[in-house]
Nucleic acid binder design. Structure first.
Length: 599
RNA sequence: GGGGUCGUAGUUCAGUUGGUCAGAACGCUGGCCUGUCAAGCCAGAGGCCGCGGGUUCAAGUCCCGUCGACCCCGCCA
């Protein structure tokens, strides 16, 4: 195959942009050969670029150099330049499946700019190969409009975020990528220092401490599209590298943060998806969210809620319930409309799910015209059955799922069930599935308590301001202290979280005392921030939104990997470049590091 | 750290209780074909059944280990 030079050929349009209005124009296009349909005489070629596909038609002609003869020798993914006339398709030939389907390009010239190996998988609209292979050849997978479009959306969102925040008086300020390792929170990615052997930088888990320093600096309103790195185990919605829309403001309280973010989301969804969001977003306190939905990020697209069944089943004589309640536990109930139709196998799968969240079992019983049927029903009197049905507001044909356990386990395991069943429900309710249900969750506990050891640790981070009314309990009953914390939730996903920060040294010291950090510890770990706070720290607060997750939801994808140009696998490997990778012995020597081969 | 699913032509997969099980489709190569758009028709090439060990007369199939991908629990302030 003889290759041509681009020379002074310059394209006039992108393939995917051609429309009826371009009919009659001479166009020059560049792109990749998506597919060839050779009819012996006339020949069709789908040409692809970032913007999409357009059909190019070659009419037969004489001579080996004629465009149609040269086109015959093309292969998949060859890079070509085409000159031709954009013409309307005959009515019967219009293809409404493609955006460019009302026109086609009558080719008058063809240059072959590069050839291509046969790709390892066919580039179709739907993925035609396993994800690992597509990740190894990510640059090919990204040629598929399905994925290219997501990156385009990501770009649009980033632009809207920047322009909106600029309009609100925010400055975009970069913070370091090589930062001080922190013992708190997620595991750090460590970077050894060559100049200081034995000392390490960390890659930032978030710009948290730096953005607070910027508030002390008087920057007032800061934002950044910040890369954040955490060396923790991954999930479909968790990558070791992700991007946060990181925001911090001075002289504000919760209301300013909520209003800002609501305006930002409205702008983003409006400009990028033409979706009109209703503001303000509803709010719910953490306690209610856990009680009603068994989750701190409930999906409100479906409204089924948990019920506390303790009163209904008290002294029922059913040992599991009675003993749990006597021990201070809870009996929680999830009603599933129409769930009586679930097979035994489906019910057992629900129980397995509940067990994964720590439940010892899942009691299931069907609501029939004659009372409850199955599971614990035979141990329950008619009166108790009646009370259960009433408490749940259940109707014939419903399935009642009950968990008797420690309250958090009962709620969380039924919350997982609710979430699973809700996904099924959404399949039958496309309008609900397509809705955007934003929600603020507020009043999180300031501390988390290890159920085994009883040890308290910060639920968000050490610098979160306790709620004013709970300050008196900081010393006496810290576990009940709520923080000025808030999460933004969308359709069951946590989009971001933030808080109003502590700017007063006395409160800071009291909080550190609760989690057992001595003055000496504090000095060593983040003395630099505490020192800064002594020089006139303004009241401040903010939050960070997960850009990747926002894009994932907006694009309707189920994996974060689809929103990132070069993502990592579940084991934090990059298949396209094969990292992480061993390094040469001399590189380790420079760093005064030795690898323990026995591991 | 733990649980689950998967690994067979380039790709997606089928392969029953261990015994013609090396198969299909798509892709690829060659030929035919002047309106297709997942073009069509004919022919052909293409296999370390992830890797290592074991059980057995016999292993793609059963067992153990290992590597990798995916999903989940723990973890991720």
């Amino acid at each position: 195959m003889n290759l041509d030079h681009l020379a002074d050929f310059r394209r006039t349009h992108r393939c995917g942009d051609l429309r009826r209005e371009h009919a009659g124009q001479v166009v020059r296009l560049c792109g990749w050969v998506h597919r060839l349909r050779d009819h012996g005489g006339v020949m069709f070629l789908d040409l692809r670029d970032r913007a999409g596909l357009v059909q190019v038609i070659f009419r037969p002609g004489e001579g080996a150099d004629h465009p149609s003869e040269r086109a015959r020798r093309l292969g998949s993914e060859f890079v070509i330049a085409v000159e031709g006339t954009c013409v309307p398709r005959p009515d019967s030939m219009v293809n409404l499946q493609m955006p460019t389907g009302t026109v086609e390009v009558e080719a008058t010239g063809l240059s072959v700019l590069n050839d291509s190996q046969t790709p390892p998988f066919v580039l179709e609209e739907a993925p035609s190969a396993g994800e690992d292979l597509r990740l190894e050849y990510r640059y090919l997978d990204l040629r598929r409009p399905e994925l290219a479009t997501v990156l385009g959306m990501r770009h649009r969102v980033a632009q809207v975020v920047r322009s909106h925040l600029d309009g609100q008086g925010f400055w975009e300020i970069e913070t370091p990528m090589l930062v001080r390792p922190t013992p708190e929170g997620a595991r750090d990615y460590l970077v050894p220092s060559r100049v200081h052997p034995g000392s390490f930088y960390a890659l930032p888990q978030s710009p948290q401490l730096y953005k607070q320093l910027l508030m002390v600096s008087g920057m007032d309103r800061y934002y950044q599209l910040a890369r954040c790195l955490r060396d923790e185990d991954l999930r479909a919605d968790r990558q070791p590298e992700h991007t946060q829309i990181d925001i911090e403001m001075s002289f504000i309280g919760e209301e300013e943060v909520f209003a800002l973010i609501e305006g930002l989301m409205r702008e983003v969804f409006g400009r990028v998806l033409s979706a009109e969001l209703a503001v303000p977003f509803p709010r719910m306190v953490y306690r209610e969210s856990m009680d009603r939905y068994g989750s701190d990020k409930p999906d409100l697209r479906f409204d089924f809620a948990l019920t506390d069944a303790a009163d209904a089943v008290r002294d029922s004589g059913f040992k599991v319930f009675d003993e749990t309640l006597a021990a201070g536990g809870s009996v929680m109930l999830l009603r599933w409309p129409g769930g009586a139709a679930f097979s035994r196998k489906e019910q057992d799968e629900l129980e397995d799910l509940a067990k994964r969240y720590g439940a010892k079992g899942l009691a299931r019983t069907k609501v029939t015209s004659a009372g409850l049927d199955g599971g614990p029903a035979k141990f329950l009197s008619a009166a108790v059955q009646q009370r259960l049905v009433e408490a749940a507001g259940a109707a014939e044909g419903d399935l009642l799922c009950l968990v008797a356990d420690r309250r958090d386990i009962a709620c969380r395991s039924l919350g997982a069930l609710r979430s699973r069943l809700g996904q099924e429900w959404l399949k039958g309710h496309p309008d609900a599935a397509k809705s955007w249900r934003f929600l603020w969750i507020t009043e999180f506990p300031l501390f988390e308590q290890d159920p085994q050891t009883g040890v308290l640790s910060p639920a968000h981070h050490l610098f979160t301001m306790p709620m004013e009314e709970d300050l008196p309990f900081l010393a006496s009953d810290p576990a009940r202290v709520r923080g000025r914390l808030y999460d933004l939730v969308l359709n069951g996903s946590e989009l971001g979280s933030g808080s109003i920060r502590i700017h007063r040294r006395d409160i800071q010291e009291a909080v550190m005392q609760v989690v057992g950090i001595t003055g000496e510890d504090a000095e060593r770990r983040f003395g630099f921030l505490l020192k800064a706070f002594q020089y006139g720290a303004p009241p401040h607060g903010g939050l960070a939104l997960g850009l990747d997750r926002i894009i994932m939801l907006m694009a309707g994808r189920s994996s974060l990997r689809d929103t990132i140009a070069f993502p990592k696998t579940t084991s934090a490997s990059s298949l396209v470049d094969g990292c992480p990778a061993p390094v040469a012995a001399e590189d380790l020597r420079d760093l005064k590091l030795r690898v323990d081969a026995g591991m």
